[in-house]
Write a protein that binds this DNA or RNA. Sequence first.
DNA 1: ATTTTTGCAAATCATTTGCATATAT
DNA 2: ATATATGCAAATGATTTGCAAAAAT
Lengths: 145, 145
Amino acid sequence: MGSPAPLLDALDTAGLRLTEARRTVATLIADRDGPFTAADLLADARGRGIDIGRATVFRALDAFSELHVVERLDLPNGDHAYVGCDPAHHHHVVCENCGRTTEIDDAGIRDIVRAIERRTGYRVDSHRLELFGRCPACAAAEPVS
Amino acid sequence: MGSPAPLLDALDTAGLRLTEARRTVATLIADRDGPFTAADLLADARGRGIDIGRATVFRALDAFSELHVVERLDLPNGDHAYVGCDPAHHHHVVCENCGRTTEIDDAGIRDIVRAIERRTGYRVDSHRLELFGRCPACAAAEPVS
DNA sequence: ATTTTTGCAAATCATTTGCATATAT
DNA sequence: ATATATGCAAATGATTTGCAAAAAT
C-alpha cells in the first residue's frame, strides 16, 4: 500500500541505477507493513508471478540499508528482518504478536548517548535501539500482563 | 582471568546440570575479555587441548543467554557475538577497533522507554541497546574523527 | 533409576560469490 | 560505449537436529 518512491529516490540520489529488479524490490517493500525477511520478499515476488533472483533481492536490500531507507533489525529470537523506514529515523518498536512496527524519534536517546560517552570515556559512533512488546491493539486483546 | 563462578551459579540456581562441558564453556567465557563467537570458544578449547562438541558449545551459550549471564550482540557488520555479563546489566558499548566491551547501567533508558510507551501506545516488554565506537585507548590512538 | 546432556555427523538456512549476460546510463 | 547490475547455481558459514551413548541427579 505504501509508495516505493522514497526508496527509488534514494537510489537515484545516490547515483545508483534504477533497474527493473530494484523497482520490483522497492514495490514489494512498500507493500509490506511489519518487518520482513529476504525470503518473504522472494515469496511475495513469486506470488505475483514476478521472477527475480535471490541474490538480487539481497543486493537490493543491502543497497537500501546503506541508504538508510531500510533498516535491518535483529529480533529477540535471533532472526533477522528488515523494515522500510524514514531515513531520519533509526529506531523501532516491534510488536512481537502481530509484527507491526512503529518508528520512534530520538526521544532523548541522544542525551543518553552523550552521558554514556562521558561516563565510559568511549567515543560512540553509532548505536542501535530496538524495542519489543505489544502494539496498542494486541495489548488490548490480551488484558493480563 | 575472570571467574566462571557466576556462570555456574546461574546454572545451578536454574536447576540445570553442572556438567563438565558447561564448566569448560564457562571457563572459556570467563577467560575472554571482549565479545567472542561460538567459533572463538571452539578454537580456544582446541588450543587448550580440550575436546568439546560444536553443538554443545552452542547449547551452552543458549543456556547462559537465557540466564542472562551471557548476552548475544549483533555487531554493526551483521555478525553475531556473545559477551559474558552481569545479569543485572543489559547494555554494552563495544569498541569497534579492539573489541573491548564495557557494560553500561540503565543511564536513563528506563525513562525513555516509558516515554515511548506513552507516545506510541505500545507496551514495551524488552529492549536492546547497543553502542559502538572507540574505547578511550583506541580513540586516543587515532586523533582524527 | 531416570532425566538431562553430550557428541557426532548430517541437515538446514540465510547469505554470498564468481562469472557470463543483460541493462541503464 | 561502458560501467553497473542481474541471474544462476554453487560455495560458504553459522547454527540446528536426530539419536544413541554418557553423565548427572
